[in-house]
Design a protein around this nucleic acid. Structure first.
Lengths: 347, 347
DNA sequence: TTGTATGCGTTATCAC
DNA sequence: GTGATAACGCATACAA
């Protein structure tokens, strides 16, 4: 029933398999994992049978050490419970499965300053690559630390893919936040809106900044403008959106339309409106950014800028597996598409 | 600037640090990682300084091999984009961070039959533990395969925590699906509903089955009953809920209340109702199960059975870190709490 | 307190 | 085609 060779009970190693099959370690290794050297068909079958019978699973750690390369990819997100990140992660996971790669997940829980630390942990794992998802920050020191961490990882032969801004010389999926927000601003103006406010997210996040600037551009080009004191900052979360909207309501600026720079905030903002007796979209129009899956089920339908989140995750993994040893950084641009829904009816 | 010893460029090893600091490998090891043996303060400082300067990060794989234990925990979910799983995962991640553990994520993407395979991959990683989240199935063969995989993992010293049903002799967070659904059924009956239908999820999932049975119990005890032909099965997804509801509508049974056995399905069902001109809750009451975070923002508010999802994730990780070597399996029961919202007004 | 030597499980480089 | 054996990077038992 149990392996006969009574070493540390239960841990079946390649040596166990080799012994049981009556072959050398080398042969067992070659028989199980496709080496360039071929192994006699009879032996290979015997070894495979023994391995199956003993429930042998190769020690991936040892393999990684011996081979000098691993099948683990690190994935860094800001918050795995946030649908933005979980959708991207789903894309990553699917692609990982296709390529038989394993994903080690790390979440900063929106403590942006800790990214370097988390990356260092991933670096310790000696994975073949890391995928860094989420906005970069404006913090000089933190960014420098990140650059350092990323540098030592790449110099050690690791591959890095970033999803957000191109802040480092690594493969990057650039989200065209500015352009997307510009298009949205333009569209909203076309719909007849003139008096805008913005829930702008955390000022230190480049994504938040870019979307705000893009939106400003978009409405300015169309001849509109932001109300004075109409930009409220706050965390990139549902509750952050709620709080920011509450603050905005308190300022009593009477905007016609509020742009929350991501959907999660927009959803929170809509809740704040409900709680303050503001009926959407009659009393106020709202728009977001990302098109998270949640939006399918909220009322009124939220106008937003659609990002192909799952695809972005898959694309990131694609950049990992197609990476050339000495290749220079590649950039893939992802453009957002404005989706107009009931939350911003034409005026 | 770069390490002087020109081995495989960029890969700083402990040997590099030791050489640069002019100490032995053993001393360097002891200085950096808290060994029981103490090291002279001067040396420890020197080694630490060199390590920092060279940007040394210990090779976790090598450490794991040498120590015979690893700091990696495998996490298996059915679909990381599903808010049920992403919330639990968030709890796991937070606890992981506190204990300085790394999490390797695997997603079956709801191909329930592939769990054993995925577990085998995790087993290959030689992590210290695995957390298996999500319903077990009724499939005898698949379950036997799982038992086998889990067995070899535990016999090799790995720890396993399951979140769902107690199908294996491992630490388990048992979700009291039956009791929760029973309470819900009772509550809905109390509210005056009599003619029920159920969107029952995939018949092979124990969670789906238990919730259906519990609900049946609950309404039976209160003197009610299910309509004939009022149980529609379907995938545990938003679209599954949509399809199941559409089917139910086609059957034209005129139920007063529909219980979708999880919130994700319920949300899809609500969308189907909208698309078919059924106004909620006027024309039909709807209830779900789980209390996923999405519910905060859908209208009408969905009556459901609340599960402390994040806490469950954290608890799972807690069972991992508090595991005793020879300890017998522990069981933690999680009871759902009925939350009545606008989707099921009193009749 | 510090250093030397061995082992962890596997692959790869040699011989045969 | 098959079998010894030296790495891989680190921890630790044993020596000093």
């Amino acid at each position: 029933m149990r392996p006969l060779n009574g070493e540390r009970a239960g841990v079946v190693t390649l040596a166990d398999v080799a012994a049981e099959a009556g072959v050398s370690l080398a042969t067992a290794s070659r028989a199980l994992n496709g080496s360039s050297r071929r192994v006699g068909e009879d032996l290979r079958l015997r070894v495979a049978e023994v391995a199956r019978r003993l429930n042998y699973a190769p020690n991936a750690q040892a393999q990684a050490m011996a081979r000098g390369r691993s099948d683990v990819v690190g994935l860094l997100v800001h918050d795995i419970a946030d649908p933005y990140f979980s959708s991207i992660a789903a894309g990553v996971m699917q692609a990982a499965e296709e390529h038989r790669l394993l994903v080690t997940l790390v979440s900063t829980q929106r403590r942006y300053g800790t990214e370097a630390e988390h990356i260092a942990m991933l670096r310790g794992q000696r994975g073949r690559a890391m995928i860094l998802v989420g906005s970069r920050t404006r913090d000089r020191d933190a960014t420098e630390l990140l650059r350092q961490e990323i540098g030592t990882f790449t110099e050690a032969g690791g591959h890095v893919v970033a999803v957000s801004q191109r802040s480092f010389p690594v493969d990057t999926i650039v989200v065209e936040n500015r352009a997307g927000a510009r298009l949205l601003g333009h569209e909203l103006t076309t719909l007849g809106y003139e008096r805008f406010a913005v829930l702008a997210g955390p000022p230190e996040l480049l994504t938040a900044r870019d979307r705000l600037q893009g939106f400003r551009d978009g409405i300015a080009r169309a001849g509109g403008g932001l109300l004075p004191a109409a930009v409220v900052t706050g965390p990139f979360t549902r509750d952050g959106g709620y709080a920011a909207m509450t603050e905005l309501i308190a300022r009593d600026l009477q905007p016609q339309c509020v742009f929350a720079v991501n959907d999660v905030m927009a959803v929170g903002a809509m809740a704040a409106c409900r709680d303050h007796g503001i009926e959407l979209p009659r009393d106020l129009a709202v728009a977001g950014f990302d098109d998270i899956s949640t939006l399918r089920d909220i009322t009124p339908g939220l106008t937003t800028v659609r990002l192909p989140l799952e695809q972005m995750g898959a694309l990131a993994m694609d950049l990992v597996v197609t990476a050339e040893p000495g290749g220079s950084p590649r950039v893939r641009r992802v453009r957002g598409e404005v989706v107009v829904r009931a939350s911003t009816p034409a005026r």
